[in-house]
């Protein structure tokens, strides 16, 4: 880990967004993770995406559980709200916070242990409820904080640093999310910011639950030969299928006809996509599942946006809650008094 703070001095030519902020205004404290950790790249991608979207840092909330991944919210968006909770319980925090204040942008950071093992029950219910959030899994297939045991996302046959072979099949979080009705499902790689940053932008603006299962190599315990979550392995097996196109490039860059697709979401916002391989139908859940299975058999890791539901609903829509965040409602509105209660009770008699 680095002992000195990142110097506050910055490049005077750094671009500013519409809020007059530079990318560096979205940074947090210096990372204490191992040098070269994929998680740090994901933090940098989050910083870039929030900067690009002109998000006011104080209108964001970062939530996490336990693990290397759960430490990372300290390393980005130092001016945002944050809550570091119990292992695997980040989805509960997000659900509660979102219920109380639907106006904030929620970023949940989790790892493969925090999500696929101890927090699996929480994960699936957050999807089921459709909490409007970006759920980022920093997936390295190993328990780095406890020195390199296989996690539940490690592939069968993958080797640990000491040479043991993993015997259990992995939990595929993307397939789980597809099955449970998530509206925005993507898989990416910390080493490919060109793909990751637009995906984060898309996920942050998507009005519903958005999962990014992001390969994030553990340089210390899972970056060796025989690992299927190393920088080299992922680079060699990564198959990008659909990219989100950054808004600024939508008009300026020419893509081959057919490769470009525009999707309008139910809240009126637009998403522009670029298909890189095959003719995958993004709005077809079954096709997405089949696609992953087909490439898994070929030993390919499909990355990019895998499924997008333009009609997806979030928790508040399903529950028909008021537009005003609950925490902004006045006491009289939240608790209308004995008379109102009596009249409601009377209706039910």
């Amino acid at each position: 880990m680095t002992y000195i703070a990142k110097p506050a001095v910055r490049n005077p030519a750094l671009p500013k967004n519409s809020l007059g902020l530079t990318r560096r205004d979205y940074e947090g404290k210096i990372s204490t993770l191992c040098a070269g950790c994929g998680h740090d790249s994901i933090s940098a991608a989050l910083i870039q995406a929030c900067f690009d979207l002109d998000l006011p840092p104080h209108r964001l909330a970062k939530l996490s559980g336990i693990g290397c991944s759960a430490k990372t919210p300290t390393y980005f968006l130092g001016a945002a709200h944050g809550f570091n909770g119990v292992h695997g319980r980040m989805p509960s925090l997000a659900t509660g916070a979102n219920l109380a204040n639907r106006d904030l942008v929620y970023i949940g950071i989790s790892g493969d242990g925090d999500t696929a093992s101890i927090g699996l029950g929480q994960f699936v219910h957050a999807i089921r409820r459709g909490v409007n959030m970006l759920y980022m899994v920093e997936n390295n297939g190993t328990y780095g904080l406890t020195k390199g045991q296989f996690s539940a996302t490690a592939d069968v046959g993958s080797k640990s640093k000491r040479g043991e072979v993993n015997i259990y099949p992995p939990i595929d979080l993307v397939r789980l999310a597809l099955d449970l009705g998530a509206g925005f499902v993507a898989r990416s790689f910390s080493g490919d910011k060109d793909q990751l940053v637009p995906l984060i932008r898309g996920a942050l603006t998507y009005p519903g639950f958005a999962l990014i299962d992001c390969f994030s190599p553990c340089v210390t315990f899972n970056n060796h030969e025989g690992s299927t979550k190393s920088y080299t392995y992922i680079r060699g097996h990564d198959l990008p299928i659909v990219d989100l196109i950054p808004p600024r490039q939508e008009i300026t860059v020419d893509y081959e006809p057919g490769a470009r697709q525009e999707v309008t979401l139910h809240d009126g916002s637009r998403c522009v996509l670029r298909k890189l391989a095959g003719d995958h139908d993004l709005n077809d859940r079954a096709a997405a599942l089949a696609l992953i299975e087909e490439h898994r058999r070929r030993g390919e890791l499909v990355t990019g946006l895998i499924f997008l539901d333009p009609e997806g609903q979030d928790m508040h829509m399903r529950m028909n809650t008021v537009e005003t965040p609950l925490n902004a409602l006045r006491y009289e509105a939240l608790c209308p008094g004995a008379e109102t209660l009596a009249s409601i009770n009377a209706e039910l008699r």
């Binding site: 990372s31 994929g38 740090d40 790249s41 940098a44 080493g191």
Partner: peptide, 10 residues
């Protein structure tokens, strides 16, 4: 190509 240097460079 882990990008660590790119991300940290002040």
């Amino acid at each position: 190509e882990c990008d660590a240097c790119v991300d940290i460079c002040p």
